[in-house]
Design a protein around this nucleic acid. Structure first.
Length: 487
RNA sequence: GGUCCCUUCGUCUAUCGGUUAGGACAUCAGGUUUUCAUCCUGGCAAGAGGAGUUCGACUCUCCUAGGGAUCACCA
């Protein structure tokens, strides 16, 4: 049994979005779950016109962020090697001549306009256009200045697709497609077949857009006397609305945008895998180790899955909580390691605060953190005094029933009591309970008031914990300031 | 139009002929001494339609409808 070798073969025409990266993930999982399996990255840059500068590097960076490391492929610094199709032109030439010699390829004598005329003619007659109906009887010798076409042998096929199951097609699906363009570059249809053989690829995993071309590929494999690899066709990921496949045009995000917003690669892998795959149990949260163990192509859904970012958000939160429980320092480290930016509020690195303080803050907010970029909103009041905002009191459903004078009296009492606390979390809890008795107020009123007066934030963690972290001096300072504001 | 694929809650999905059609996200309602979140409890919510096979069909077959892919010197 040959070792498993899978590949991801994008063309460098822009960034990667979730649709493309999911295909890469699945190919990677198939390779990793097999002992000795290899995952290969190949850049399909045979269309000079569509190539976008820097996108090969961008693809490499995206895979790297997601931890989808390839065993063979382009150098990480972006220099070109044999894993760029543009560097393999001689190889395609050699194979092209094999086909010519075998009488299975011929020079296309028509101009683009002539072919177009055939096409329109067929369309007018409401008949499918097949180039092979116009196959020239005595094609000229191919000199490389015209396209080279495959001389097909149309027939029906029944085949098995690792995802889609048993498929069958009629001879109408097969035509004389172009192998080599007049600029000397091979088409995808030709190049990928040659490369997959050359690189000993065992599983070709790719998107649904290629499904209708597969009969042509099968025909070419036969002409080349090659046993086709295992073919697996992934259904498309659909955009948030409509039934169109997810595309950059419709605003599909660059996968690296998720890094910028502070999503965990682990969560992203989980999310991607769950779009169209599950293991048949009710498990939702998977570690990557589990994905490698449990993934299988035959459990991939055959219909398209709609991309729902809310699910990603939830999964990311779940993974953040797991991460923290495993090792609080791990989350802390990740927050500092982003190549894009620090996720902490700017003030978090000012003089009075150190790693210990930031870690305490993180302990209080980790369970409400969905992605790192919202950290400043969740924690800014730990690091700076927020401006007094009376609407937080006047719009509060508990507090708006009271006059400012009444609230001020309550707050005075709170201050007196809190001044006697050592500001440990436990002692604060006791003191706050005493205060409830003293004032006869409901916690809803008293705690809301103190919370707002010491943070001026719309939301915060539990009161005692929050005050303990903010500290005695600063908490009392803020109380004084709030008392002044409550005239 | 030709060829091919798909069709279970709003969304992602489970079900290998027999289930009160299950779970998760989202949403709604409660609870956990305030808020936000977490966590817990509960609610709402689905087999596109029609024939057939069968004792029995979401599951198998056919038809219809709907959706999608593709029909480039793009991948």
């Amino acid at each position: 049994m040959k070792p498993v070798r899978t590949r991801f073969a994008p063309s460098p025409t822009g960034y990667l979005h979730v649709g493309g990266i999911r295909t890469a993930l699945f190919a990677w999982l198939v390779a990793k779950q097999s002992p000795g399996g290899k995952f290969i990255l190949r850049i399909e840059d045979t269309d000079q016109a569509r190539e976008v500068q820097g996108s090969a590097q961008h693809i490499i960076d995206s895979l790297s962020w997601l931890g989808i490391e390839y065993d063979e492929g382009p150098p990480k610094d972006g220099t070109r090697n044999d894993f760029y199709q543009s560097q393999r032109l001689e190889i395609y030439q050699t194979w092209a001549h094999k086909l010519i010699d075998a009488g299975r390829a011929y020079a296309d004598p028509y101009t683009a306009e002539e072919v177009q005329a055939f096409r329109e003619q067929a369309q007018k007659e409401k008949r499918p256009f097949l180039y092979r109906n116009h196959r020239p009887e005595n094609p000229p010798v191919w000199d490389g200045t015209t396209p080279l076409r495959f001389k097909s042998d149309p027939k029906a096929y029944s085949r098995h697709d690792a995802v889609m199951g048993d498929l069958s097609t009629s001879p109408e699906s097969i035509d004389d497609f172009i192998l080599v363009k007049s600029d000397g570059y091979p088409t995808y249809n030709f190049a990928h077949i040659v490369d997959d053989v050359d690189m000993e690829i065992t599983h070709v995993i790719r998107g649904q857009e290629f499904l209708s071309s597969v009969p042509n590929y099968l025909n070419l494999y036969e002409a080349l006397d090659i046993t086709p690899p295992i073919l697996a066709t992934m259904p498309h990921i659909l955009g948030p609305d409509g039934n169109k496949k997810l595309s950059k045009r419709d605003g599909a995000k660059d996968i690296l945008d998720y890094r910028k917003e502070g999503y965990l690669p682990e969560a992203m892998r989980n999310f991607l895998a769950s779009l169209g795959w599950n293991d048949g149990t009710e498990q939702e949260v998977f570690s990557t180790k589990e994905l490698i163990e449990k993934f299988s192509l035959d459990r991939v859904q055959r219909s398209g899955a709609r991309f729902d970012e809310r699910r990603l958000l939830w999964l990311n939160g779940a993974h953040i909580r797991n991460l923290y429980e495993d090792d609080p320092n791990q989350l802390y480290r990740l927050l500092g390691e982003s190549p894009d930016a620090t996720f902490w509020p700017e003030e978090a690195f000012a003089a009075p605060y150190g790693a210990t303080y930031r870690k305490r803050v993180l302990g209080l907010v980790q369970e409400r953190l969905k992605f790192f970029a919202e950290l400043p909103d969740l924690t800014n009041f730990f690091f700076r005094d927020l401006p007094v905002d009376m609407s937080l009191i006047d719009n509060n459903k508990q507090l708006k029933k009271f006059s400012h004078a009444e609230l001020k009296t309550l707050l005075e009492q709170a201050k007196t009591t809190l001044e006697t606390s050592d500001f440990s979390s436990d002692d604060l809890t006791n003191k706050l309970n005493e205060l409830l008795e003293q004032t006869g107020q409901k916690p809803g009123v008293l705690f809301s008031l103190i919370r707002v007066a010491t943070t001026w934030a719309a939301a915060s963690p539990g009161l005692a914990d929050t005050l303990a972290v903010i500290g005695k001096d600063r908490s009392l300072e803020r109380l004084n300031r709030s008392l002044k504001a409550l005239l």
